[in-house]
């Protein structure tokens, strides 16, 4: 039986680990390579790195981080942030990443999803969506809107419609990130996650809002997510990966325990 995945998300800026609250006020919290190895040794299932480096000059620093992680960590990991072309994707893959996350650039130019899927495979092309709740109206029948640029720019695009287009264009997985829940540590946006997970036939990774083990259990059962993204709850040492997985297994959730 397939296990539910626990995925740790590491925001990297200029080669260092950062954690944002509601996408503003980011602060450095350490070395991403050391953190990745620590989580790997503790039974993490998968990693995501978001490169939040502002300047394009610093992109090579990220490739170096990817190389170092790939030398020590033998679980899948994806990289996102600033992937605008197939060439960007190929560079990251060649450096050792397993999958690529596309986000803002795909909203602006949806063909990017198809291009990546063709060049590196559907299963390696992950569409990451930043989503916020809005009033249900003609433009937003799902009641959720896609935003880009770290949550600052609304795109006038319905979230459910975009998820379905992303699947159609060839994305192999979806990251559903709630901007409203992100950084609050008050729980995932369950309704949003379930709505998208039920509508698409590819795996859905829930993101934004994890603060307690109960939140993971909720989104992986009621929220119908295939995987749960976590960040600050483990980055600051409040919980460990193995503690979380043990807690989930004790409540009947199938998670990978032997590693």
């Amino acid at each position: 039986m397939l296990s539910k995945r626990i995925i740790a998300c590491l925001d990297v800026r200029d080669g260092k680990l950062a954690k944002s609250v509601k996408f503003v006020d980011t602060k450095d919290i350490g070395d991403p390579v050391a953190k990745a190895k620590e989580y790997y040794d503790d039974g993490l299932d998968e990693l995501v790195f978001y490169d939040i480096t502002a300047s394009s000059d610093a992109r090579n620093i990220m490739l170096d981080v990817v190389e170092q992680v790939a030398d020590q960590v033998y679980i899948p990991f994806s990289v996102g942030g600033g992937v605008r072309t197939v060439e960007d994707a190929n560079k990251l893959l060649w450096s050792g990443a397993e999958k690529i996350n596309v986000n803002s650039a795909a909203v602006q130019r949806p063909e990017l999803i198809a291009e990546c899927a063709h060049a590196i495979g559907n299963q390696n092309t992950v569409l990451s969506m930043d989503i916020r709740k809005v009033e249900i109206c003609r433009d937003f029948p799902s009641g959720y809107e896609v935003v880009i640029n770290g949550g600052r720019t609304p795109m006038g695009l319905d979230a459910l419609e975009w998820a379905l287009s992303g699947e159609e264009l060839g994305a192999g997985e979806l990251v559903v990130n709630s901007i409203d829940a992100d950084g609050t540590r008050e729980g995932y946006e369950i309704n949003l996650t379930r709505m998208i997970a039920e509508a698409v036939s590819i795996p859905v990774i829930a993101s934004g809002g994890a603060g307690k083990p109960e939140h993971l259990l909720e989104v992986l059962t009621e929220g119908k997510a295939d995987a749960a993204l976590i960040a600050s709850m483990v980055h600051f040492g409040e919980y460990t990966i193995s503690e979380l997985k043990t807690w989930l297994r004790e409540r009947g959730l199938k998670v990978r325990m032997r590693y």
């Binding site: 036939s201 795996p203 295939d226």
Partner: peptide
């Protein structure tokens, strides 16, 4: 069952 996702992605026994 349409809720079974394809591709099969993740950790399995």
């Amino acid at each position: 069952d349409r809720s079974v996702k394809v591709p099969h992605i993740g950790w399995n026994e």
